[in-house]
């Protein structure tokens, strides 16, 4: 069985959290997943475009879908925000003929149309549902034995469940199931399904950082060795901004944050360099040494 997708890493994973996409491209073949780049794909707007102009947001997203439709493939992303933004737009377009027609009128300006035939999936979802924990177990080269992970789902991985709906928005289990297959233990903690604060970083920074700190501290206090997240934006706040969050919290936090893809990569035997682990702001060496 070979799975094939149009690959949409999202803007963050192409730049700031490039390590996540780099890792994905190395992990995917090991899982028999073929990823086709989308050279034309634009930014989904991360919701900000929707705030600015709803119809433009639909059109820009439809442009992405049209490219995938042209390739005859569903989209796979490794960004939760892209997942949520694209999936809700896609669902609105698919369920409202009038909206689809209006959107196509805009796309027509660039000679494009979207027929409403594709689906969007997160890598986490593909690993969980289409690769499966069993198969994954068999591929593990370097079990994450003795490592306690705090899965940080990220809002846009789970909600709105009426559109995304592959895991329970309150008590999700997919991350835990997968990291268990990789040999790690999981901790339960208060911030697990809450917001990292990213969307407020540039708007109400103090609030955002206080939120980041609160989530990290609840993970840390639950005894986790590391946080693991399927969303690059969460990663930016939890890792890149951890030192700023520490300042707001008035307390050292110091907990490494893995991309979901890296947790896979480590267990499947990729090298630190392959996964860009040196790009993290919070050092990972102790964690790696303990595996």
């Amino acid at each position: 069985m070979s799975l094939k997708f149009a690959y949409y890493p999202g803007c963050a994973s192409k730049e700031i959290t490039r390590e996540s996409s780099d890792t994905t491209l190395k992990v995917a073949p090991l899982l028999d997943i073929e990823l086709k780049e989308m050279p034309k794909a634009n930014c989904c707007g991360a919701g900000l475009l929707k705030d600015y102009d709803y119809k433009l947001h639909l059109a820009m997203n439809a442009r992405i879908f049209a490219e995938a439709e042209g390739m005859g493939l569903d989209i796979m992303t490794i960004c939760s925000t892209c997942l949520m933004v694209m999936s809700t737009a896609n669902s609105e377009l698919k369920n409202d003929e009038k909206l689809l027609a209006e959107t196509n009128e805009l796309l027509g300006e660039a000679g494009l149309t979207y027929k409403g035939t594709i689906d969007i999936k997160h890598f986490l979802w593909v690993v969980m549902k289409e690769v499966g924990a069993e198969k994954l177990k068999g591929l593990v080269k370097r079990p994450l034995k003795g490592i306690r992970l705090a899965s940080f789902y990220g809002c846009h991985t789970l909600r709105p469940s009426s559109v995304l709906g592959f895991d329970d928005p309150l008590n999700p289990t997919s991350m835990e199931e997968i990291t268990a297959a990789l040999g790690a233990e999981s901790v339960d903690y208060d911030g697990r399904t809450k917001c990292c604060g990213f969307q407020a970083d540039l708007v109400t920074e103090e609030v955002a950082l206080a939120m980041t700190a609160k989530r990290l501290l609840s993970a840390k206090d639950s005894g986790a060795h590391s946080v693991v997240t399927p969303c690059p934006f969460c990663h930016i706040n939890l890792d890149s901004y951890q030192s700023k969050a520490e300042r707001v919290a008035g307390r050292k936090i110091d907990i490494p944050v893995l991309h979901f893809t890296q947790a896979l990569g480590i267990a499947l035997g990729l090298s630190s360099k392959d996964m860009g682990l040196d790009r993290h702001m919070v050092p990972l060496q102790d964690l790696l040494d303990s595996i």
Binding site: E15, I16, R18, P39, K40, A41, N42, D53, K55, L56, A59, M60, R63, L106, L107, E109, A110, G111, L112, S240, G276, D278, R279, H280, M281
Partner: peptide, 26 residues
Amino acid sequence: HGKMPHPVVLPAIDGIDEVRKIMDKR
């Protein structure tokens, strides 16, 4: 840590013209 993205010039995606046309129209 290599985390600051192209502070000056970020290259445009392929087909940026399409994007602009759609935006103009809107």
